[in-house]
Design a protein around this nucleic acid. Structure first.
Lengths: 191, 191
DNA sequence: GAATAAGATGAACCATGGTTCACCATCTAT
DNA sequence: ATAGATGGTGAACCATGGTTCATCTTATTC
């Protein structure tokens, strides 16, 4: 067992800067930003990135984890509104809409979603999000508004297929087209 | 005006081989296949590819056009079935399902779909597909089964977001979730 | 069956972008 | 203050993959 003496102060500092920069850059330009750009944004050299994260994938995963946390917060907030009396269906679709809308700016969230759907993940934020969404669904089902067979993975499935690169109008239309699949009521007119 | 004497026989032959090979390769491995591989499959050298198509994009577009034709055929067949008495909604959703299912094997179709949604295209197959789908929609609306505000671009929108890389079960589920957005009836139980 | 233009060839080129590593700087423990 | 390991640097490396071009081949024409 390596007792592993405490990491150096500047190393900790840099790690944070890197994570923050990676987040910003990925948010702005998607996961395909170059390591050089992330390094520059963090005010470090490329080599430093590799000291902290063995591969680019590792870095992206780590950075994206922050956005999963954001989604989890959003879901929990929505849930608390429901517990305060708001309609669950409305909150759920609004949540879906917000997350989709957010993923336009934060292209990374989309990647995060795929992570969500992909692996069980290492506990934490993913669970929080899942739990909150599940509660949201259950509440809506209790109201009789959400179809009984809807599950959390349905939400992830839909979210992972959201038309991120399409114009705002298309995204709104998409949400309108997709919502009836979750609810028990037939579609209303208009969008 | 260059009278442009007829192109050489082998040039014509090669052009066909290239198009065919590009189709196969893209179908098998998606639009990201290397030019080398396409050339090899066609039994030609890379340079020949570039003699016929100035850039890779041009080649892909040309190759993908063939798949647009396939989709158009499918849509027209579905339409003819409706005219023979079949239910329009059923044909439309089945069509959507088939195309999605097909795009698992033919990853290229997906690219084709994005092309469809993107530019007006140079007439032809895209129009055929659009016309057939439009007729399908109109028929379904006449039956009162399809929501009055559904348009052809809705179909394209949905198709372009289909979960191509997900397992079969997920794709089926997706179709079930998405269908109610097109119809006037509320969701049924099960998937 | 030359002559010649159209076409084919594929090694080489180049840009991109992730990754490495020999060397330098800095923090921390004594 | 100093040793020495931990961390940082960034030019260079390498793999990938699209694109070019000088050269050779072959179909067509007279």
């Amino acid at each position: 067992m390596t007792p592993a003496r405490a990491p150096r102060a500047d190393a900790v500092r840099n790690r944070k800067k890197i994570l923050a920069a990676a987040g910003e850059q990925i948010t702005a330009h998607g996961p395909e930003v170059g390591m050089d750009e992330i390094a520059a944004a963090a005010g470090v050299a490329v080599g430093t990135l590799y000291r902290h994260f063995p591969t680019k994938t590792d870095l992206v995963v780590a950075a994206v984890a922050a956005y999963v946390a954001r989604v989890a917060d959003d879901a929990e907030t929505a849930l608390s509104r429901v517990q305060a009396g708001a309609h669950a269906v409305d909150e759920l679709t609004a949540f879906l809409g917000r997350v989709v809308e957010a993923s336009v700016t934060d292209r990374a969230v989309k990647a995060a979603a795929q992570t969500l759907g992909a692996e069980p993940g290492d506990r934490g934020d993913e669970d929080r999000a899942g739990t909150a969404v599940a509660a949201l669904i259950r509440a809506g089902q209790a109201d009789g508004d959400i179809h009984p067979d809807v599950t959390v993975s349905d939400i992830y499935l839909l979210f992972s297929t959201a038309p991120t690169d399409q114009p705002s109008a298309a995204r709104a239309r998409w949400l309108a087209l997709v919502t009836p699949g979750l609810t028990t009521r037939a579609r209303q007119a208009g969008n």
